[in-house]
Write a protein that binds this DNA or RNA. Sequence first.
DNA 1: ATTGGCACTCGGAACGTTCGAGTGCCAGCG
DNA 2: CGCTGGCACTCGAACGTTCCGAGTGCCAAT
Lengths: 344, 344
Amino acid sequence: MVTQRGLEVLRAIVQDYVATHEPVGSKSIVERHAFGVSAATIRNDMAQLEDEELITAPHTSSGRVPTDKGYRVFVNHLAQLRPLSAPQRTAIESFLAAPSDLDDLMARTVRVLTQLTGQVALAQYPSFARASITHVELVALAPNRVLVVLVTDAGGVSQRISPLPIDIDDADLAVLRAQLAALVTGRAVGEAAERIASAMEPKTGARLQPALGALAAVIAEELAEFRQERLVMAGAATLARREQDFRGSIHPLLEAIEEQVTLLRLMSEMVTDEHGLATSIGTENAPFGLGEASIVASNYAAPGGTARVGVMGPTRMDYPSNLAAARAVARYLSRMLEEDEAAR
Amino acid sequence: MVTQRGLEVLRAIVQDYVATHEPVGSKSIVERHAFGVSAATIRNDMAQLEDEELITAPHTSSGRVPTDKGYRVFVNHLAQLRPLSAPQRTAIESFLAAPSDLDDLMARTVRVLTQLTGQVALAQYPSFARASITHVELVALAPNRVLVVLVTDAGGVSQRISPLPIDIDDADLAVLRAQLAALVTGRAVGEAAERIASAMEPKTGARLQPALGALAAVIAEELAEFRQERLVMAGAATLARREQDFRGSIHPLLEAIEEQVTLLRLMSEMVTDEHGLATSIGTENAPFGLGEASIVASNYAAPGGTARVGVMGPTRMDYPSNLAAARAVARYLSRMLEEDEAAR
DNA sequence: ATTGGCACTCGGAACGTTCGAGTGCCAGCG
DNA sequence: CGCTGGCACTCGAACGTTCCGAGTGCCAAT
């Protein structure tokens, strides 16, 4: 059983260890924190914390270091977010002001977050999976090449060039446009994908069927792209400064950053607390090959539902600050997207 | 003055050092290469090479290591590309087969190149700077929101949503479309940008002028995007394996990868030899903050002119293999783009 | 329950020794 | 004159020893 003071000691250990990167001893705790008890008492508390596996000693006689479990307790029960400073808030505001489009907004978001935290920043794109198709437009580039543009009600646009197996004229194009529009406009992305699949089968011998099939195939690809989750990142270079924080090497992290898929799954599988904040610590990420890393994230509100923005760093990170930064950025991001949607 | 055999010794040193990552001594040279002379003779040659600053000794009595100048001589005079193996060629072929679009093709290109060389792969996008605008299309999303699509003859497409300061109807849209088309279709990107600038000035009091101005501004942005060089990369994670190859840290490299701008300039400023190959070694990259890295690249033929594909790695890299890989990939890439253009 | 005291542990720094790979130089040889 | 074997020398890497101090666990006293 851990006493109340024991928890305070854990908090002190986490804070000091994150600050100094060195195992913390009983003596340095009484020096840096006003516990009003002697080092020996702290030592007794530390022995209890060690029994509970909340802290551990790297060597027989050395200071203590929090375990992953210790960080977890710290984050869940002991940490309170450290609010951002005024300059930090204005930094976010000016960084995110007047983006030219969604890509730009997302890129700026991760840049400001990596700049605030000094960690690798990650952001899920708003999902278009539940959006509906509002427009399908065909532009003839040549008799046998058509540009296919798809627009969703959530602001997502996709475009792709499709070669055609036959030459068509403007009248044909109008026919095809009408046929495709009937299939997908007003439909949710998933539903549209089902309906478009039927058009891809070469059923009738109609003259335009080959062209329709080709266009349907391209539209299917575009729809698949809408359903796919995406991720933006920034600050990978900051990992180089932290090499020794990751026992083995930063290779798994760089790999994950390049892969994206892993991080995408990780981000979406994290569980949020009642404030929309999520934390995944050290070995909790082991199934993803990132047992040395921690991730904190905050939900933000996007047209297509909530998505997440956060940072990835060493287990020994400053959770309160990083959580606060992620939350602040998420809030601004939500607001930007809300304004954009209102204008639509 | 360096003798013929001296140059052979340099070649041996470069080869052995790249292979073993350890300073090479006179004795190991006579063991691994059939020079037919004694170690003492090699030592004399090495002394000459050291006078010429082609090699250097890390410590007073230790093997020798090539200097950047030594690598340069090796690459210019001593190296002959090592042709790829048959499996490697088929790997390229199957990797690059049937890309779904340009982005996909470029992504696969860098992936195969990083897989072949184990280094960070870089590829410039084909440039659309000299392309011409063939289509400008407006799609009404709402009375005050229009999707603007631009298409070039080099296969580049750009799309963006523009809010309008006033509401317009379909007839207005047709008018605007005609006005904008008159300004930019058939024009080269640069020329189009100049002409579109004029439409952005609020000169006349015409009713549609505010809308025209807004659309022109968006088109100007899209044109600027066409003029901008772009880069794709892969294999950043491989750097982690090579940490100690970069004396200081891999931070500058990761930074450059994230920045892109630096690498873009570096790639475009490299000078190619008569075979379209370019090499930039160690300190030659110092102005770009990459004095510890080398880059090799090969030109490839793209619709908008030649562009480059290559790899970045430690100065102590296997130049012949990497150059051969870059050249092979560049050739396949040229062919793919040529086929695509023929289909257009 | 808390505390001061104390013996104990162990990692890290400092230092010395040894070992061997590699060098430069030189006299001798074809 | 170029090449060679021989030799003294250098210096880094590896290893062992010593020393120091921060930190611990435990215990008797309060």
